[in-house]
Amino acid sequence: MKRTVPLFITACVGFVLIIAYFVPAVGNVTDLALIHFDILAAIAFILGGGNLLRTHGEKIYKQQSGWGYSLIALGCFLLMLTVGLGKIGVSPAFNQGSWTGLMQNGESVSLVQLNKIAATYELSVTIRRAEANSKLDLSVAGTRRASIDIDEKGRAVFKADFDADEPQKNADNSWLAEVAHGAAVTVGSMSGQLAPFGRVTGEFNANGSWFWWLYEYGFQPLQQTTFAMLAFYVASAAFRAFRAKNTESILLLGTAFVILLGRTYAGTYLTQWAADPLVPPAPDDLWGRFLSFFYMPNLTEWIMNVFNKAGNRAIMIGIALGVASTSLKVLLGIDRSYLGSDKG
């Protein structure tokens, strides 16, 4: 059972996704599967985060060798978690609208919300409890805007919308575009103020937030530094690997030399006698076309487009077949090693 259920799920989901590629009527199952995977991965992060806390926490607690690094790692983890989850320093998303919260006066309860999506404004007044079969006046910023009929149950919903891109449609509601945050709203005897939805609507990594600042000025420079060190690693690997020991290695060394030189200005400078990059040789200038072959950028491009591309494509064909075969074995349950032991 422990292995049968996962195998069954793997086979079902896998074959459904393959079939969905050829059977459009099934719909966009691939995107749905990816969304489900993202949800699972997000939940699984709790395991990863817990493991991180435990590993480093234990090291700090037992003061094992290198516990200082663990303290920094854990401190940074908790700091980013706190500023991200807490949305510290995040501005409210003013462009999304505002509301009054619940307005009450005695037994009457109502709520006013102003939504803004692109250039469209939508005012929604919900009266949850009021005197049945009556009328209540709606005023915004001191101006009476509408009269709302309350039904026999003491409830009502009033909506007004306005599209700034089509001002001629619903022109009577054009005042919606001028309602400012903090505007006073009254519905009958209930009153309130339109306030933004709050920090909840802002993005945790919006520009200016603490999370953004720590990521841009703390983490990114470190990341780019590590990436920049690659140049030195390439040099040391090349120095070790490219040795003229036999014919193949001499060919490899020669090609690497041409490509490395061709990708720098030095290659262009040293071979500028061979061709003028601004004036290509005429089609009938055979000698000029022959010489231009030795212009380093041209030679580099030729090696990359002919030899390298051919080899790359051959590897990719092999990879594609390998992926297809491995996937088939996993789907058919022939290869089960990723699930763990066969025994027990």
């Binding site: 090349a238 690997a241 590897i315 990719m316 990879i319 390998g322 075969s325 074995k329």
Partner: peptide, 21 residues
Amino acid sequence: PFFVAACDYTLIGEEFFAASA
């Protein structure tokens, strides 16, 4: 290419997928 240059042994493309078998 990086692995070939820096490592002692490299499984290229489909050799990597053949490893399980």
